[in-house]
């Protein structure tokens, strides 16, 4: 499948800012399931810094914008050819040891309920791969998808307690339980092309899921929101310990203005 992406993020300030600095993780890395045909990232009026690839294989690029400024507009766009690898991440260059992804963060720390749930699921599993599928399915059941039901700071434990969340919360819950079962797990951000689906297109093209390390296979993606493993409808942007660690855009602006953010992601398929 060939997917075209147009991802625009705008930060607006209610007073002029002196300067802004951005660290962007907006570059889909090549692996068997995806190949870039063309891709560009631009910060309007910004100065491009240098870029590097981190231990997880993601390219990160720094940008700065000189003030006075009242808006920072970041555009990532391009075309990506994707294919279905049954969720298995193959041919992806990275150097981080999977065991690095057993570290808990505030968002993915287990409470008693998550721990119990994980133990309950683990008791019925026949092996690590089966465990991965069962954990993901259980998260879909226990944390129902509900747009707008949580905030960016909501933790896995809080999402489980209220029984609903968005893809970020579901991924966090899955990661927390997998790590509790000693499976290295990480957060993945990316795009999801919803083929004539029922999700609002501009809102939900930005997506997140989890990857679990299964011995013998390597990293395998699990998406509790769509109850599947990532396939040709998915573009993988980057990975990290949790949503904060994986954020496609990290930025800060110097000045007194209050910030508002506006995101739009348009995903289209060339083969319909």
């Amino acid at each position: 499948m060939i997917l075209t992406v147009n991802h625009v993020t705008i930060y607006r300030y209610d007073a002029p800012m002196r300067s802004a600095v951005q660290s962007l993780r907006l570059f889909p890395a090549r692996h068997e399931g995806q190949r870039l045909i063309e891709w560009s990232v631009e910060v309007e009026g910004g100065i491009r810094g240098s870029s590097f690839r981190d231990g997880g294989g993601d390219r990160i690029e720094g940008w700065s914008v000189r003030g006075p400024l009242q808006e920072v507009r970041i555009t990532a766009r391009g075309r990506v050819e994707t294919s279905d690898t049954a969720g298995i991440l193959r041919g992806h260059y990275e150097i981080s040891d999977p065991l690095v992804y057993l570290c808990d963060t505030a968002a993915t720390a287990c409470d008693e309920n998550l721990r119990k749930l994980a133990a309950d699921v683990a008791a019925g599993a026949s092996g690590p791969l089966d465990l991965g599928h069962r954990l993901s399915a259980r998260v879909s059941d226990e944390v129902a998808y509900m747009s707008g039901s949580t905030q960016s700071q909501t933790t896995a434990a809080e999402a489980l307690a209220q029984g609903q969340g968005v893809c970020q919360d579901q991924a966090h819950a899955l990661i927390a339980m997998a790590r509790e079962c000693d499976l290295p797990a990480r957060y993945v951000s990316g795009y999801f092309y919803d083929q004539g689906g029922d999700l609002p297109p501009d809102d939900e093209a930005s997506h997140a899921w989890a990857e679990l390390w299964i011995d013998g296979y390597g990293w395998i993606g699990f998406d509790p929101a769509n109850k599947c493993c990532p396939d040709a409808r998915y573009i993988r942007l980057g990975s990290g310990l949790d949503a904060h660690d994986t954020a496609p855009i990290r930025g800060t602006a110097q000045g007194m203005g209050a910030e508002t953010m506006d995101v739009s992601v348009a995903l289209k398929s060339m083969q319909q």
Binding site: V21, Q22, S23, G49, S50, F52, D54, E61, G62, T252
Partner: peptide, 24 residues
């Protein structure tokens, strides 16, 4: 660097870790 580590840090330099990791 608040962009890489504690976002509430006022002591560091935003973007420093990107420059560091790209060899600048």
């Amino acid at each position: 660097d608040p962009l890489c580590f504690r976002p509430d840090s006022m002591l560091g330099v935003p973007g420093l870790m990107d420059v560091y990791r790209s060899g600048g």
